[in-house]
């Protein structure tokens, strides 16, 4: 007969690393080239639905129409909602605390999530008017806007 042995539960820590490269496509590329080269923000208008979308897209989410035009939106905007991130996580782009806000750029019907800086945490209000602070060296990604700040 086999003697009964107690085994300690066996657990291991591992990780998987995956590298990728996301392509922004037709509408996305136009947006990022414009922000990088001209500091101009673009949205996609749908004439059927009378909406201007950010992020820009080639297809209207609502009516499935093809969107080919783009219009300038912002750069000023309004805080629609916000939160103060008070805890640290490796995935966070910044050390806590920092403010994440959803900002509806003037002329757009949908909001953009970004950082809000140069403001005291207890001074942030929904409805607050804000403007983007652009990076000096822009690379064609969303951090070409460093953050938004109050007017």
């Amino acid at each position: 007969m086999e003697t009964k042995t107690e085994y300690q539960p066996f657990e291991v820590d591992q990780h998987l690393t995956a590298r990728g490269n996301y392509w922004a496509g037709k509408a996305g590329s136009r947006f990022f080239v414009s922000i990088r080269d001209k500091k101009k923000l673009l949205g996609s208008p749908c004439k059927t639905c009378n909406k201007v979308f950010w992020p820009p897209r080639s297809i209207c989410t609502f009516c499935f129409g093809e969107l080919k035009e783009m219009v300038e939106i912002g750069p000023l905007g309004t805080v629609e909602t916000f939160t103060v991130v008070a805890y640290a996580e490796p995935i966070h782009p910044r050390p806590a605390p920092f403010i994440y806000a959803v900002i509806r750029l003037d002329g757009a019907d949908t909001g953009m999530a970004h950082f809000l800086d140069e403001v005291e945490i207890d001074q942030v209000r929904i409805g607050m008017r804000v403007k983007p602070v652009f990076a000096t060296e822009r690379k064609g990604n969303i951090l070409d806007i460093r953050y938004f700040k109050p007017l």
């Binding site: 085994y7 539960p9 066996f10 591992q14 490269n21 392509w23 590329s29 064609g140 990604n141």
Partner: peptide
């Protein structure tokens, strides 16, 4: 003539795997 934009990204997924009763015996 168009410029296509891309952004590199690296995803690192940590996990803890429990072998369970049977495999624990074999591995131990």
């Amino acid at each position: 003539e168009k410029e296509w934009i891309s952004i590199p990204m690296t995803v690192d997924v940590p996990y803890r795997f429990a072998a369970g009763e049977y495999l624990t015996k074999t591995l131990t």
